[in-house]
Nucleic acid binder design. Sequence first.
DNA 1: GCGTGGTAGGAAAGCGCTTTCCGCACTAAG
DNA 2: CTTAGTGCGGAAAGCGCTTTCCTACCACGC
Lengths: 357, 357
Amino acid sequence: MSTLRSSRARSHPGAPVTLAHVAARAQVSLATASRVLNGSERTVGEELRERVMAAALELRYASHGPAQALARATTSIVGLIVHDVRDPYFAAIAAGAMRVAREDNLMVMLASTFRDPELELDYLERLRVQRARAVLLAGSGNTSRSFTQRLGESARAFEDGGGRIACVSHHGVSMDAILLDNRQGGRDIAQLLLDLGHRDIGIVTGPSQLLTVRHRLDGAREALADAGVPLPDSAIALGDFSREGGRDAAIRLLEASPKITAIFALNDLMARGVLMALEATGRRVPEEISVVGFDDLPVAEDTSPRLTTVRLPLEEIGARAMRMVLEPAGERRRIERISGEVVLRESTGPAPRRRRS
Amino acid sequence: MSTLRSSRARSHPGAPVTLAHVAARAQVSLATASRVLNGSERTVGEELRERVMAAALELRYASHGPAQALARATTSIVGLIVHDVRDPYFAAIAAGAMRVAREDNLMVMLASTFRDPELELDYLERLRVQRARAVLLAGSGNTSRSFTQRLGESARAFEDGGGRIACVSHHGVSMDAILLDNRQGGRDIAQLLLDLGHRDIGIVTGPSQLLTVRHRLDGAREALADAGVPLPDSAIALGDFSREGGRDAAIRLLEASPKITAIFALNDLMARGVLMALEATGRRVPEEISVVGFDDLPVAEDTSPRLTTVRLPLEEIGARAMRMVLEPAGERRRIERISGEVVLRESTGPAPRRRRS
DNA sequence: GCGTGGTAGGAAAGCGCTTTCCGCACTAAG
DNA sequence: CTTAGTGCGGAAAGCGCTTTCCTACCACGC
């Protein structure tokens, strides 16, 4: 009977059990209990060790994280700030980063800013308060000068507090980073379109203050310029970085430039939207018009035709970024570059012959 | 000059600034500084208040979360345990839950178990260590008796520590919950198939130890039984709860039961896989065979034909669950039920006329 | 037998906060 | 003028740990 009762001990609200309780029950000092239960350099005699273990088990002791953090002056928390968990792009990065965090026995605090830069700053501040060991900024950087500066200051403050910080993609701020070669990707995919004979190319772009957008667009511009193919303003339509944004932008684009034979959507979500618009207006892809995206999210294979796009190894990127930010700070800023590669699917085809102009 | 310097103060590693520094600089006591900087009942005189604020700003003071947690005996952390962030189902729930957490000024620790029940227990324990205020279990429950029991014990231990815990979906454990009516959903969607005249219906199912799977399947079984339509074992194929799992299962299913005119995939991801298999084998949907899924994830609208499925308001579910778990514990177990509704798209059609048998 | 090292256990000093309790100054009431 | 009441500031006692130091003890060598 008594064993039964003791095994159910503390299953009532009462005051939570602390190390002191464990120590008392095991008849040892606090120091010893601490050494046994939380990896310490010092060895503890076999007998005491067992007494402590047993007591901890019986009391169902769980150490007090915040107290440990205070005493040790370090936590086992890392922060991860993304734009939106629902966006598969960020979900993939998050998954990679979380895998690495887990390997290092760290808990991750995830924050979604929903693309609000202020929230990004706010979360960074909160992570500073939490004394996160490291923070990973995974959203795309912003082109706003003043925002960039404030972000830089916050990052500096965070580091002064002893934390590490790094980002994925350009952020216009000097910190360790995994840089995605969005420009080259934009260039490559535009070149693909050119190689297929397309000369009237439209672009469906996202919010222009995102650096990712800007770089992909720049890459495409370069490729077109090199080939001497014009890209009038009317061939560029802007929308949200989402399905709906892509669809709406495509509709406007088709009105403004009905002659285009190919559309480069700056990410796969938008490309999906473009496909929706094309389907709604009865245009065949790729026979009448080709469509390409960017990122190679799962959706790229879910559409029909499947999307030609630029593959980014997102989980790998998340993992490497997390690994980088968990390393001790180096002397100099660390940069790793990752580039995407074009994956050819069925949404692209040779340019149709020119219709009567 | 001096203002400039002082505004840049502490931009060097040195020891981090504490409340004591702020208090010293503002020439007030620790108590006063604390009261000013961290909402307290007590009022502080205008002058001192301003001095403290100024000092904090100049030093770029950030309070020490763990220390506050220790002193206040409560944290501003909530935990969220899901199977996989990459799965849009969980991403949506997470987004809803995170929105509510944000409204309450809480930080969320997100953990992905990748469907490993041991990890679920492990993370729950870690969240107990972190003294999370509340934990939301979002994965589907498990049918394993022993696991369920251990989960129950861990949950109890967590609650004994003063935290709240709740789950989405059945977990076979008594705790507050948002219950999804998976059985009814399965029933409804199967009924839809029946109403369309299908009599040879196949099912592509996920891991059978998931309660979600079991309930959806049970619902479908009931509908078929009520209609007197047989469901032979050969008409059920099992796979991973993913695209690939759905595809592979569909291939096996079609071999085992070539006569089927409709397939119910237990979630949209699997349904997408089914569509892939059907496309690969040249079967037209829905003319030759109808396909339905479950969840109504974005992918349901990305495929062609678009998927008929059961819509679950996932973000709403995540939000309500978080709200529930943040409320003080009630006397009795709290349960909210949410049911899905069939949304009709193009992947379903009337059963083709029986071929020669 | 004594000094010497090495080892295991414990006492206690923090870690950075919050909050109780105390005291002072001032006002209002008697 | 005294007394009670009120408002504000500060001293100090924790919160639950870790870790430094100190002490006691043992084994060993000479």
